[in-house]
């Protein structure tokens, strides 16, 4: 009861803060500063039609590399803690509905995830969303069966390879064009084509593989860890 009251109080305080903020908000009529620059010269600079990906991977590529490192250390810590817990009993077998769905859907979901990753420079998406979608397909596979073989070694080698690819692509730009993660070590090509936008598609692939393998590794070690049952 006390927990409910405290929770409701926190929600109400947050709502009050939000309402005061919303009251002051006005929709800006024009882009300001660096946003204007991105929208004016983004497509010529990077060759990427999707300006969000252009900002995330090309203009702010170093930040994305940092984000990948944060994700790597977080998942390493989680898996380390989970492996300290002794392996638990096999979870209850899935119902026939879940098992049937998990036999059909994952292929389509993985295909959609790969589409999001490979078309990151053309349509909404990119490495992070696509990798998360692929990982959710693996999650569905794990939900549908209790006898999934342990692939954590394979997953961690994919993860390391993807992280290494990202870093090496960055150094490629540094040694040829004098700028870390320079996008145009491969010619930008004509914007709108699947093979265009320099190294953005390659970095998207690396991020996608890394996110998908990291999340899948967390799932499988979480699934194995024991509980009170």
């Amino acid at each position: 009861m006390i927990r409910t009251i405290v929770g409701l109080a926190i929600v109400l305080v947050l709502a009050a803060i939000l309402i005061t903020v919303v009251d002051d908000y006005t929709v800006p009529s024009a882009l300001s500063g660096v946003g204007e620059l991105y929208t004016q010269t983004g497509v010529e600079d990077t060759g990427s039609v999707n300006l969000v990906t252009a900002v995330v991977v090309a203009y702010r590529g170093l930040d994305t590399l940092g984000e990948v490192v944060v994700l790597f250390s977080a998942s390493t810590a989680v898996v380390l803690i989970l492996t300290l817990i002794p392996i638990g009993a096999n979870p209850t077998p899935p119902s026939s509905i879940v098992a049937f769905t998990a036999g059909i859907l994952p292929g389509a979901i993985i295909l959609f995830g790969i589409y999001i990753i490979t078309h990151g420079h053309l349509s909404p998406g990119g490495g992070f969303p696509g990798g998360a979608v692929v990982a959710s397909a693996f999650l569905l596979v794990m939900l549908g069966s209790n006898t999934i073989p342990d692939k954590s070694k394979f997953l961690s080698s994919i993860e390391s390879l993807a992280g290494l690819t990202f870093g090496l692509l960055g150094f490629w730009g540094m040694f040829t064009l004098g700028q870390f993660l320079n996008n145009l070590v491969i010619p930008a090509g004509s914007p709108g084509r699947i093979i265009s936008a320099g190294i953005i598609p390659l970095i998207s692939l690396a991020i996608g593989a890394k996110v998908a393998s990291e999340l899948s590794g967390i799932f499988s070690s979480y699934r194995k860890a024991g509980g009170e049952e």
Binding site: P124, G126, P129, V133, S136, L139, L215
Partner: peptide, 18 residues
């Protein structure tokens, strides 16, 4: 839409199952 995809797969699917 890109944020929506991430939220739907991580927030709605993955964290619910976790």
């Amino acid at each position: 839409p890109d944020v929506a995809i991430t939220e739907a797969s991580i927030g709605a699917a993955i964290s619910t199952v976790i």
